[in-house]
């Protein structure tokens, strides 16, 4: 169940965040977050619901703006990019949504083609078909190509959501609660897929989750968000080897739920 070691380049931080703060009205969600994601690394961000985990990756992808702090992705400061530069950066940063966010009026094929044909307008029909078949094969769902999202199971939707981000060949993957709402067997399939993506596509990833099995199976390193800050980080064992009641409660609830 433990993740095998990945080749991580600790000299090269593909994402670097310094003193990030974000509030919604009087609710202070992130209160000074610091984070480095190294090339080739799967970094798991753990935390209870509502602690700002998803807010963090939405800020990284430029969907939300921070109140203060510095966010650097692949050497670029996200806050100071023009619209065009942000689009270029987003080609390199894949985002897998918690509810998959598949376009429900399009078939699986159209979902996968959508970002490709809009970003690479000179591709031939054959090249598009090949790219679609390749990523679908990669997530093990070649047979679903002509199905509508409503005809897919939760696990299949997650896979297609991941395939849709992979089709642009991103360098970084951001997974928002990849195993939320799935049965335990499907969770393990998705965790294995996350590891396969890391190996096959050579990606670095931030995996947002509150599922400890997912954290253990996919994380090279784990950071725990407590009260708006990263207060613990390291391997799974290092993070949970503590007397901090908040961490112990989180651990116990996860395995007794």
């Amino acid at each position: 169940m433990e993740k095998k070691a990945s080749p991580i380049n600790r000299e090269n931080a593909v994402i670097s965040i310094r003193d990030l703060k974000k509030s919604f009205g009087s609710l202070h969600v992130l209160r000074g977050v610091d984070l480095n994601l190294y090339q080739g690394e799967n970094l798991v961000v753990l935390g209870r619901s509502g602690t700002g985990k998803s807010v963090l990756i939405k800020i990284i992808s430029g969907l939300l703006h921070p109140d203060s702090g510095e966010v650097n992705v692949l050497g670029l400061s996200v806050g100071s990019l023009s619209d065009r530069e942000l689009l270029q950066l987003r080609l390199k940063v894949g985002f897998s949504f918690q509810n998959s966010a598949l376009y429900d009026s399009m078939t699986v094929r159209e979902n996968l083609e959508f970002p490709l044909v809009r970003n690479y307008r000179n591709l031939t029909r054959k090249e598009i078909d090949l790219a679609v078949e390749d990523v679908l094969d990669g997530v093990g769902l070649s047979q679903a190509i002509n199905q509508m999202p409503s005809e897919l199971s939760g696990g299949q939707r997650k896979r297609i959501g991941i395939a849709r981000t992979l089709i642009l060949r991103p360098e970084i993957m951001l997974y928002d609660e990849p195993t939320a709402g799935l049965d335990p067997i499907t969770c393990i399939d998705i965790n294995n897929l996350i590891n396969e993506v890391q190996e096959k596509y050579n990606t670095s990833a931030i995996i947002i989750t509150h599922d400890l099995t997912c954290a253990k199976m996919t994380g090279d390193r784990i950071m725990m968000l407590l009260d708006g800050r990263f207060e613990r980080q390291g391997t799974f064992e290092q993070v949970f080897d503590t007397d901090d009641e908040r961490v112990k409660t989180f651990y116990n609830y996860n395995f007794t739920d």
Binding site: Q88, R90, F95, F97, Y103
Partner: peptide
Amino acid sequence: SMNVTEQIDAMEVSATNPFKF
């Protein structure tokens, strides 16, 4: 409904322009 189910965000993060589309 696309906004609620994050489909608009999904277009945005996949480097397409949802406003135009």
